[in-house]
Design a protein around this nucleic acid. Sequence first.
DNA 1: CATATACCCATTGACGCCCATATATTCCCA
DNA 2: TGGGAATATATGGGCGTCAATGGGTATATG
Lengths: 153, 153
Amino acid sequence: MDLFVSKYINKIDKKGRVSLPSSFRNVLPKANRNEIILYKSIKTPSIEGCGVGRLKEIAKRINNLDFFSEDYDDFSTSIFSEIVTTNVDREGRFLIPEELKLYAGIKTEAAFFGQGHFFQMWEPKQGLKNTEDSRRRLLKEKKSLRMMLTQQK
Amino acid sequence: MDLFVSKYINKIDKKGRVSLPSSFRNVLPKANRNEIILYKSIKTPSIEGCGVGRLKEIAKRINNLDFFSEDYDDFSTSIFSEIVTTNVDREGRFLIPEELKLYAGIKTEAAFFGQGHFFQMWEPKQGLKNTEDSRRRLLKEKKSLRMMLTQQK
DNA sequence: CATATACCCATTGACGCCCATATATTCCCA
DNA sequence: TGGGAATATATGGGCGTCAATGGGTATATG
């Protein structure tokens, strides 16, 4: 499986370390399995993460913008300067930068939510509530959810 | 990771030295890891920097502008004639030329902002404000920033 | 000779590596 | 198929190394 799926709640130890769920580690390319990138989610008070390969994709896209436009600077600044890279140690743990922890309200535990090609980290209570809210919103539009799930390609 | 990412705020000591963030040093080619180039940003009161290899890329970008346009001359002059090369010492520190420091209003601290293939140095307060402004402009077009981050290849 | 700059050494705190353990999971065999 | 061994995962903690910073001194360069 090369997708981030399922959810996990892991503890943050005294040193600030937290285990990246084992199944998430296996999604990272074997070459860069000890490095992940993190950034603030745009829409929610959560942290998003993924492997470095994805960052290179993003870099390529930004590089294709007009170098002298304002958009270029805005994207470049908002993305590259807000992204942090973090090393995963031999036991599969990493440090969450203080600023990101504050942004997500994470203190002693972090909830990991698989999102396919990336994952999110939430303060557990807020994260679970967000899941419920998401589901509730989807069910209100049952028809479109049905289509989404049953449609053949 | 071969991109300049994340942001750091480092001190400038009595001798005018400042540490190039360790992760930035690692982006420089091993061959010329002790040399960087700096120039005034065209659009903002900041200093831009990168490894020497990047110069060719900049030249290409400028070359793609209409040769007879006023922009061509302006960019060409503003960038090439203003470029300075600086040596990084064994501890990873370098001197910011006085003229560039003045241009960016940098005094006792410098904020480093990763921009992918290059980086920017700002007076910390101004730099952080710039980041906020950038992000605010982009959030007005939430869709485009989201696409940039989540789109699959 | 005077000023600027590079090299060397030192200090501090943060982080990565190593070792250890408890629990959970898988695997294997009788 | 049940039980136990082997393995993996999440977690805890000691300690060495490295990054950021400070300062002395040699050296270059005009």
